[in-house]
């Protein structure tokens, strides 16, 4: 499934770029994220808890940067595997940043998500909707953090 969206964020392009690669920020923005760390090879590793009613999954996630043109374009691939073997997912992301003005940045985002295993077998209908919602929350949190950042300055 393809998730596409676009949002205007407070802050200059460079700052948004840094936030997007900042493990602490990512941890705060990804819904259910418990930890994020950067490995020596540049990969991001983390765990994300997803709960949908009685279904609980904890994904070990690895994010690999495939292509990067700081601070405007980032292509990454995320792979997650549930610790309880209920399923796994692969997500290919393409992200672009564009300056609207020195204080505002437009973020455009396309990702192709593929969930497999029991978790997908059983609740495709729900997981599609849930993934969309998680993505929405991610962008909302990011937007919030950036707003907050500006107030501090």
């Amino acid at each position: 499934m393809i998730i596409e969206s676009s949002i205007t964020l407070d802050g200059p392009v460079k700052e948004v770029w840094e936030k997007l690669l900042d493990p602490a920020c990512l941890k705060n923005c990804i819904p259910g994220c418990e930890s994020v760390s950067v490995q020596s090879n540049g990969e991001f590793k983390g765990t994300v808890k997803v709960k949908i009613g009685p279904i609980k999954a904890r994904f070990d996630v690895v994010l690999t940067i495939v292509e990067m043109q700081p601070p405007v374009r980032l292509v990454s691939k995320m792979q997650g595997r549930d610790r309880f073997h209920t399923g796994r997912f692969t997500q290919e992301n393409q992200l672009a940043l564009e300056e609207i003005n020195p204080d505002r940045t437009r973020l455009t985002y396309t990702s192709n998500l593929s969930i497999s295993g029991k978790i997908a077998t059983f609740g495709e209908r729900i997981f599609r909707a849930k993934a969309k919602e998680m993505e929405k929350n991610f962008l909302a949190s990011l937007s919030d953090i950036l707003k907050h950042e500006e107030r501090k300055q």
């Binding site: 009685p54 279904i55 209920t86 029991k118 059983f122 609740g123």
Partner: peptide
Amino acid sequence: PLLRQRLAR
């Protein structure tokens, strides 16, 4: 069905 699939534990 969720128990059967071990999606709920």
